[in-house]
């Protein structure tokens, strides 16, 4: 369930946000209150992005190391790969938890700004266009495919990691 929350909510927000952004280009305007809200929400986003990027970069290094060990065909290195693969699995779980926390905390901040949001909505128009819908559908399909593959791979990874740990 957590994985589903991680993968679906951000996409939904991104898709609608993109549409909203295009519509609001003409009517956009900033204020003191928005700047304050902007700082808090933006700090949350940037912190989460930094954490996730750090973990992903570490994972990339570990993956390269495991690949090199496989190519060397040295028994000692092969044994070390077991620990490295376990670390990679843990890092992927970290990224997952970072995004799940973000999907929970970010909407809460938006709810706290309910009054400002309502006012902003009143300013903007809710008219929808066919072109926007088409673009949304394309993006939705692409990201949806990624989401499914990620989920399946995560499940497979979990199963195999347990098997490998048991063997070694």
């Amino acid at each position: 369930m957590d994985e589903t929350a991680v993968t679906t909510k951000p996409d939904w927000l991104n898709n609608r946000a993109r549409v909203a952004g295009e519509r609001t280009e003409e009517f956009f305007c900033g204020g003191d209150d928005e700047e304050e809200c902007d700082d808090e929400a933006w700090d949350m986003l940037t912190r989460s992005f930094w954490q996730a990027q750090t973990v992903l970069d570490e994972n990339r290094a570990l993956i390269d190391e495991v690949n090199s060990n496989h190519e060397s065909k040295i028994p000692d290195n092969m044994a070390k790969n077991v620990g490295l693969i376990t670390q990679i699995h843990g890092n992927i779980s970290k990224v997952r938890s970072i995004y799940s926390d973000l999907s929970v905390n970010f909407p809460n901040i938006i709810r706290q700004r309910g009054v400002a949001a309502v006012n902003h909505r009143n300013r903007d128009g809710d008219v929808e266009e066919d072109e926007d819908e088409a673009e949304n559908s394309e993006e939705n399909s692409a990201e949806h495919v990624l989401d499914k593959s990620e989920m399946v791979e995560l499940m497979a990874v979990g199963m195999r990691s347990t098997l490998s740990a048991h063997r070694y």
């Binding site: 991104n14 946000a17 993109r18 549409v19 902007d38 709810r111 400002a116 902003h120």
Partner: peptide
């Protein structure tokens, strides 16, 4: 309340698009 318009209102257009690109990149 949780709608794209609200997010744009809170973050601003530039930060909104930056965040969206960052999320897409990390996801890939």
């Amino acid at each position: 309340i949780v709608s794209p318009d609200d997010v744009v209102g809170i973050l601003g257009q530039k930060h909104f698009w930056k965040a969206r690109r960052k999320i897409a990149n990390q996801q890939s």
